[in-house]
């Protein structure tokens, strides 16, 4: 199962990279960035999985004594948790920039933004 998730994550990362590099519309480039984000998260969670184990929450089913042999790795999950929230902030920031750029140039096509091109 973790292999399937790993392949899916890598392919989603490559799909996002393709969208970032080929699209002309800024909104579509930002969609590509958010797809790239999701792929990275899938890869990180798949790396944390341990075969046949359960979530890192100790309750009646998983007692404190046997936690060492029954739970998956909690550290990458905690990192992904914060990464998703930051991802929303960064996406919102990029969209705000895109709105500002559209207000300046009246277009969303990246080929029209030549201000720093030489």
């Amino acid at each position: 199962m973790e292999y399937v998730a790993l392949i899916t994550g890598f392919l989603v990362i490559m799909a996002g990279l393709w969208a970032i590099m080929t699209q002309k519309n800024i909104i579509r480039i930002i969609i590509g960035f958010s797809i790239f984000d999701t792929g990275l998260h899938i890869v990180m969670v798949a790396l944390a999985y341990v075969k046949g184990r359960t979530a890192p929450i100790l309750d009646n089913m998983v007692s404190v004594e046997e936690a060492l042999n029954k739970i998956v790795d909690p550290v990458p999950q905690a990192l992904v948790l914060t990464a998703i929230v930051i991802g929303l902030g960064v996406t919102a920031l990029m969209l705000a920039f895109a709105m500002k750029m559209h207000k300046e140039k009246k277009t969303l096509d990246v080929r029209n933004f030549k201000d720093l091109k030489w």
Partner: peptide, 10 residues
């Protein structure tokens, strides 16, 4: 992907 062999323990 190739070197990933599935975790057996923490």
């Amino acid at each position: 992907f190739d070197s990933f062999s599935g975790n057996e323990e923490l």
